[in-house]
Design a protein around this nucleic acid. Sequence first.
DNA 1: TCCCAGGGGCCGA
DNA 2: TCGGCCCATGGG
Length: 222
Amino acid sequence: MTTIRSLYRTLFSEYGHQGWWPLYNKKTGKIEYHQNDYSLPKNKEQSFEIGVGAILTQNTSWKNVEKALLNLYENNLLQRDIIMDVSEKKLAGLIRPVGYFNQKAKKLKIFANFKDEINRENLLNLWGIGKETADSILCYAHNKKIFVVDAYTQRIFTRLGFKDSEYDEIQQLVMDELLDIKELNEFHALLVELGKNTCKKEPLCGQCCLKKVCAYGQGASP
DNA sequence: TCCCAGGGGCCGA
DNA sequence: TCGGCCCATGGG
């Protein structure tokens, strides 16, 4: 069985810096990644934007999230105070491309109205925020030392041969070995890259940088 | 025209 | 506690 650090090194040498979290750039008018820049978010506005993105991306690809975020920007709606006041119907109309737009509009309103201390327990008490979304917000919007586990991560860890692929167990396993917030930030993004393009539902083991250490790549069942 | 997908809430067993 | 269903779009 390989170590978490070894996986991290292999993935990083394969894919390099991922530059998460993608954010809107006012100069270019595009959603951009930030390779080699771990100093995000720069301000409260960016922090809120990351929270919005974390909700919009639930069970949805980033391409669709980008469309919705641009819609919000163009309508001057990517600000906490404005989302608090705008109607759910208008919000839903602008975020249509992400799917589940009625539910997500409701989630955004609840998130915008949330003013308590940002911690995991408080976030998990919000309707529409589960473990992955809460941990994404803590890690990427508030620089908290926490690892985000998503469906890609669970699939990859199962195939690698880790016995327990439950959320909490994977999170603890990773956080026992990776102690640096930058590494936790990067490792999640690297796993997304692997899961999205290679360790897909039908995996492309032939082109996988982890095939030598992967149980599935060696012929085990998924 | 189907089928699939990075989440979360809710309900019944 | 867990499985099944619902929410909905866009892309292959």
